[in-house]
Design a binder for these strands. Structure first.
Lengths: 217, 217
DNA sequence: TCAATAAATGTACTCAGTACAAAATTATAT
DNA sequence: ATATAATTTTGTACTGAGTACATTTATTGA
């Protein structure tokens, strides 16, 4: 049985900070799911979490950041997949394999179930959240482009790297949305998973063909 | 010499409305280019255009709409290219040809010159404008997906249509950005044009490969 | 216990966008 | 022409996110 760290341990500060952050996030998420993102004000969140309004913005620069708080994991997955890949497998193929692996291990929001369904529905119900989702996609695209270029020792601005990243992110996004739509309509999680992987694979075929003659495929 | 239409013509109303709209748009654009989108308030625009603040929002639902006011033309080009295509040329190829044609006829922002450069720079300087650009891209993607599905008589939700649209829009976006970046760095408009078309063609190869076995290619 | 540091909070502000009503303008029918 | 209807313009007052800055409160290390 693990004891809680002694109260006088030098980082009670960090622990308290993390605790209030998590409280705010949890309270906010509950309200967002219950009533829709745009129908919840930051004042309400602060009140419900029993903190000052400024404390909310102290922990989350944007209201949307209380909702999307796992995108860092996605970034790491993408970086790792490209950095730690077997050099004999082309970068584009490495990302295809990553998609398959993430589905296998039921990564967050890649399990097609009621759980992630409410997440998706909440996003679909808010222009603000959709805008933030598009922005995150853009950040991931830049990250992938950079990682691809680094992989093969090219310049960060290499147009081919950006094209490959653009095509891959497009595949992932379409696969994600279409699979969730399919689950929403049929409630068949196997069917959704199959569609997701089929679209990922078609996209990878496309990206590979587009990258013929480059080191990316 | 053309005379102005008689003042008592029944649609002076529409003409006046259009006139104030154009005044607002012109004044706003000048301010945006001069000082950056985010450094200009709607109040300033209203004052500079000598209209009430509400009039601005009467004509433009969002501040960004004063800047992006030509996206309807793009929509029409895309629709027409797919509707009026020779049935022997596959939809994906029809869109590739459209890109080449638009560059040939120096469509707005597909001429790589100082003119469009300031446009791009203004967008790059504003998170708000970048967000709106991403949203417009999303709308175009939905439009292309629908037009593609219609083309071949499939359902509007056909996942293949969405994948094709996603891949194509990704190519167009990357081509657009990389070509403008190249012009910005080299001031060589021929080089920018060549890069734009090369990326469009690579993207089309990718989309065609991804769509193998479907009616879209 | 005291001084330094960092977190939480309060106050007051800016700005985009909305709701609603009133005023001004233009069109239409008699 | 003139009354009336329709539309555009405008003003007022509001909401809500986000920021600047100062202050208080809690934690840390000496």
């Amino acid at each position: 049985m693990t004891m809680p760290p002694a109260a006088n341990q030098p980082d009670r500060r960090s622990r308290k900070r993390l605790a209030t952050r998590r409280t705010i996030s949890a309270v906010a998420d509950r309200l967002f799911f219950e009533r829709g993102f745009d129908n919840v004000t930051v004042d309400e969140i602060a009140a419900a979490a029993d903190v000052g309004r400024m404390t909310v913005f102290n922990h989350f620069a944007r209201k949307e950041d209380m909702f999307f708080d796992r995108d860092e994991e996605g970034r790491e997955s993408l970086r790792d997949a490209l950095r730690q890949r077997d050099p004999s497998v082309p970068p584009v193929e490495a990302l295809r394999l990553l998609a398959h692996q993430l589905v296998r291990e039921q990564a967050p929001y890649l399990e097609f179930s009621a759980r992630s369904e409410s997440f998706i529905e909440t996003v679909k119900g808010s222009e603000t959240l959709k805008a933030r989702a598009r922005a995150i996609r853009g950040e991931l695209e830049t990250l992938v482009a950079g990682a691809l270029a680094e992989c093969v020792g090219r310049d960060l601005n290499d147009p081919d790297a950006h094209l490959a990243a653009g095509l891959l992110l497009a595949s992932w996004t379409v696969a994600f949305i279409q699979a969730h739509r399919t689950f929403h309509e049929t409630r068949d999680s196997d069917k959704a998973t199959a569609l997701f992987l089929a679209l990922i694979d078609k996209g990878a075929i496309g990206a590979t063909a587009a990258m013929a003659g480059t080191p990316y495929a």
